[in-house]
């Protein structure tokens, strides 16, 4: 659509600007402010070396450890949830009662408060009272997410798959619904294989919404805090301490404001950078569709 140039449109954007400035810019400036100061007994002192906390954090093994765990986690859940979500969407009923039924049940995990999601899996995985932990142990599989690192990781990943695959599936489903029937008829005339139909009709049509799915899942998994915190508390040891958990521990637990602020800023920048790449790809896709 051709847009008219109109600078007065700024007035329409103004309320959003004021609100977001209040709830985002001021806090962000506070964080920047902390990152270059030292705190002692509630008093702030400017640092002589402005970048001290940044350098310190960059040399801190703890932060790198959390960052690698975070990247591994986000990578694994994207690798599972995106293909699984597409697969589920392809298998969903196209219309009728069962389609509505599937939609409602699938949306359910998305609307459960995150700490309740954590509680559900904490209980579900417990070896004494949880169905999953109890069954696995009865089957002779040694499973205890509070002590075993591998079990803790599996629990956290399965929980995330349980929680969010539906979002990917629903997005992919919306993409599939928009494909006109004529496309499938044409494919049938050409005797296209199932794979060819997927590769050349369904996948390109889903590309736009899949980018949204990847973007949302990446951002949210990168900020994940509540669910793993409730289930494992970041443990055993620091095996499931992701970036946000580590940050909250540092800022609100130990009150190391300076280093925590420097950590925050770098954390934010990493998310921003990766999301910018996704966003650029996405708007280019949008443009190509528009032509």
């Amino acid at each position: 659509m051709n847009k008219t140039v109109n600078q007065k449109a700024w007035f329409l954007v103004l309320p959003v600007l004021v609100l977001v400035a209040f709830s985002a810019v001021i806090p962000l400036m506070t964080v920047v402010n902390y990152s270059v100061q030292d705190t002692f007994g509630g008093q702030f002192f400017p640092l002589d070396d402005k970048l001290l906390w940044f350098r310190e954090m960059l040399q801190d093994d703890r932060m790198w450890g959390a960052l690698w765990r975070q990247l591994t986690f986000s990578g694994i859940i994207l690798a599972i949830e995106i293909p699984l979500g597409i697969y589920i969407a392809l298998n969903m009923p196209k219309s009728g009662f069962w389609a509505s039924f599937c939609l409602v049940v699938m949306s359910l995990p998305l609307l459960i408060p995150w700490n309740v999601v954590g509680t559900i899996w904490q209980i579900f995985g417990r070896v004494d009272i949880g169905l999953l932990g109890y069954t696995l142990n009865k089957l002779g599989i040694d499973y205890n997410y509070t002590q075993d690192v591998f079990a803790a990781w599996v629990t956290v990943i399965v929980m995330d798959v349980w929680h969010w695959t539906s979002l990917v599936a629903l997005l992919a489903y919306a993409g599939l619904q928009s494909i006109p029937n004529a496309y499938y008829q044409a494919a049938k005339i050409d005797q296209a294989s199932r794979w060819a139909v997927f590769r050349y009709i369904e996948l390109p049509k889903m590309a736009g919404v899949l980018m949204i799915a990847i973007l949302l899942r990446f951002m949210d998994s990168f900020m994940i805090y509540t669910e793993p915190f409730v289930v494992t508390g970041g443990g055993p040891g620091s095996a499931t301490t992701f970036l946000s958990i580590d940050l909250v521990k540092m800022a609100l637990g130990q009150f190391d404001l300076g280093p925590a602020a420097a950590f925050s800023i770098m954390y934010f920048l990493v998310i921003l950078l990766i999301s910018w790449v996704f966003y650029t790809v996405m708007t280019n896709l949008d443009k190509r569709d528009g032509v």
């Binding site: 959003v16 977001v20 709830s23 985002a24 001021i26 806090p27 962000l28 506070t30 964080v31 951002m219 990168f222 900020m223 805090y225 970036l243 946000s244 958990i245 940050l247 909250v248 800022a251 609100l252 404001l257 925590a260 925050s264 954390y267 934010f268 998310i271 921003l272 999301s275 966003y279």
Partner: peptide, 19 residues
């Protein structure tokens, strides 16, 4: 605007508290 959707709440928890 979208970057604010990407901002980790953990980053904002303490400044919000003070603000």
């Amino acid at each position: 605007l979208l970057t604010n959707r990407m901002a980790p709440p953990a980053v904002f928890a303490l400044p919000f508290f003070q603000l």
